[in-house]
Nucleic acid binder design. Structure first.
Length: 561
DNA sequence: TAGGAGTACGTTAACGGGAT
DNA sequence: ATCCCGTTAACGTACTCCTA
């Protein structure tokens, strides 16, 4: 915590001074100024938001802040009023709200654009008469025959450029026009007569922040200017790195911070929200997230105790936790699996939705899809989609559970796919598989026996979801029929089924499982219909009874007709 | 009602001369 | 003053239905 007071004013004091600086400038008529630090880097994203909010309150206008982490500078700008004839795109258009039109940083170049950029000059030197279109075409040809290593080099450059772009413009978000919106190109040249703004010197208190200097208002958000700036570095000055010697502090002990902050909020009655009598961490967080810039400033101003300052800053720095992803639902899992089927793969998703709903309605394996969806969501939440891709998960687990391979699904369940004259797919049923073909007792037992944990164990035994560790809180034993109608399952699985699952896993390690030959899953090794043991584990007739058991369970809960 | 997945489609980065 | 051309890759949004 001592690092907070390492600077001349202390962190809170510095924040207040910067805010006051900004307020003075705007009151004095300035429309933009350069602050000698990266506000977000030093104070955290939430504090930066307060800064923006409060600075905007002063003029009754939206304020934007742009960071340049390289030079440790924050450009604070009053947003422009809407320009009816301007080529600039509105920001925040998607939500229908947002600040008025301004100019934005251009997109970072991708690897192809980098390549084209590099080749442009070469082609132009070789033949000055070439047009840009011709050069593009030539570059395209070159790109197609470019060695992979060279392409990788450009990819790496593009990756670096993107990271750099993110560092320079942390708030940047690609925001294309909506299809159909009239095209308005960003102006490439500074408008003649648009004098660059320089705030009067007297609005700055150079004794406090000698580095705070006004900059031209259009110098950052104009694409052409940005390109120009890249070449000439015309934005200056560069703040001395020593001004803010401490990078953004990452608090270690949230509980302590929140406790102190809570205590502070409770004690400072004039800053305390009316409904906050005994605030807990959630109260504090929601208050900090919702209070106005003015309230924030009062709160900071009234915070004398260093520990409370640090606690408050900590709460601000941490900000709200990222929203957790929703769990995959059974239907989506089902669709993702089936959509790989050869007959369906070519049909647009939009057209498939209706027949997919029909198939889902009649699918006998809904409980299994629910389990799989939960199992996958559990792993995804821990290791991420990259390490736990859904398609691979389904490719592994579905054959094991005797769910027909995508390309066999329609046939196995008696469906016929018909494409009408307009190319729209419909499904009609030619027969319904017999649901009473297997032993009901075993069916129920198997249904009761399979859990989310079993599924996770199985796919993990194949090497899937590396890095996943079993967590008692997440890998719940969600047994198939446990909560059909609020009742607990009548009995647990027969030990034989559990043992069989273990055997499956052991068998899997004992044989090499053929990989699918193409991305469409066309070479699934498990082309088995219901009730037949699939060749997923060659020679193993392990759970041939499992699926009929599931179907029995489905009948009981009314999912199957 | 928001959000889960996958797909299709539109936009936009750079470039500069010509067209509107 | 601004769009268009020609190119590829990256990204956002709309779309679909179901589930929590």
């Amino acid at each position: 915590m001592s690092s907070y007071t390492a600077t001349q004013h202390g962190l809170i004091g510095t924040f207040r001074h910067l805010l006051e600086q900004c307020a003075q400038s705007f009151r004095g008529g300035a429309k933009a100024l350069d602050l000698p630090c990266n506000i977000e880097g030093v104070f955290g994203p939430l504090a930066a938001k307060y800064f923006m909010r409060h600075a905007g309150d002063i003029q009754g206008k939206q304020v934007s802040i742009t960071y340049d982490t390289d030079r440790a500078v924050t450009l604070v700008q009053l947003e422009h009023e809407p320009e009816p004839q301007s080529g600039a795109e509105p920001i925040g258009r998607a939500a229908g709200v947002g600040p008025p039109a301004g100019r934005r940083p251009p997109r970072p170049m991708n690897c192809w654009m980098m390549f084209r950029d590099a080749m442009h000059k070469q082609f132009k030197d070789m033949n000055p008469d070439l047009s840009v279109q011709q050069i593009s075409t030539l570059c395209s040809r070159e790109w197609k025959v470019l060695p992979a290593a060279e392409k990788d080099r450009y990819r790496a450059m593009a990756k670096h450029a993107k990271e750099e772009h993110q560092r320079r413009f942390p708030d940047y978000k690609y925001n294309p026009r909506r299809p159909g919106e009239k095209k308005k190109r960003q102006s490439r040249k500074a408008t003649p007569g648009t004098a660059t703004f320089t705030a009067p010197a007297e609005v700055f208190d150079f004794n406090s922040f000698p580095e705070a200097v006004a900059v031209p208002t259009d110098s950052v958000h104009d694409a052409e200017s940005l390109r120009h700036d890249r070449l000439h570095h015309k934005i200056s000055p560069i703040a001395p790195a020593s001004f803010f010697p401490q990078p953004r502090h990452q608090p270690q002990n949230l509980t302590t911070s929140i406790t102190l902050c809570t205590s502070h909020l409770t004690n400072v009655s004039q800053q305390q929200p009316a409904n906050m009598t005994s605030p807990n961490a959630d109260h504090v967080a929601s208050y900090l997230a919702a209070c106005t810039g003015e309230e924030m400033v009062r709160l900071l101003a009234g915070t004398a105790d260093p520990a409370a300052q640090a606690a408050l800053t900590t709460a601000v720095l941490l900000g709200p936790a990222p929203k957790p992803l929703k769990a995959l639902n059974a239907f989506v899992a089902f669709r993702c699996y089936l959509i790989k089927a050869p007959g369906l793969a070519q049909i647009p998703m939009k057209m498939l939705s209706n027949p997919m709903g029909v198939l889902w309605e009649a699918d006998p394996n809904k409980p299994l899809w629910s389990l799989m969806a939960k199992a996958w969501s559990t792993m995804r939440d821990q290791v991420g989609k990259r390490r736990a891709p859904l398609d691979e998960f389904l490719r592994l687990i579905c054959p094991h559970l005797k769910i027909p391979a995508p390309e066999m699904y329609l046939e196995c369940l008696g469906w016929k796919l018909v494409i009408n004259g307009e190319g729209a797919p419909t499904v009609s049923r030619e027969f319904t598989p017999d649901p009473n073909s297997e032993d009901a007792e075993d069916a129920e037992a198997a249904a009761n026996g399979l859990s989310v944990g079993d599924i996770i164990n199985y796919v993990r035994s194949t090497g899937y979801a590396q890095g996943y560790s079993t967590d008692k809180n997440t890998a719940s034993s969600t047994f198939l029929s446990r909560v059909r109608d609020g009742r607990v399952a009548k009995r647990q699985a027969k030990p034989s089924h559990i043992q069989q699952l273990d055997k499956d896993i052991a068998a899997l390690h004992a044989v090499s499982v053929p990989e699918p030959e193409d991305s469409n899953g066309a070479a699934y090794s498990s082309m088995f219909p219901f009730g037949l043991a699939g060749p997923f584990v060659p020679g193993a007739d392990h759970d041939a009874t499992l699926l009929p058991m599931m179907r029995k369970a489905d009948m009981e809960c009314g999912w199957m007709r």
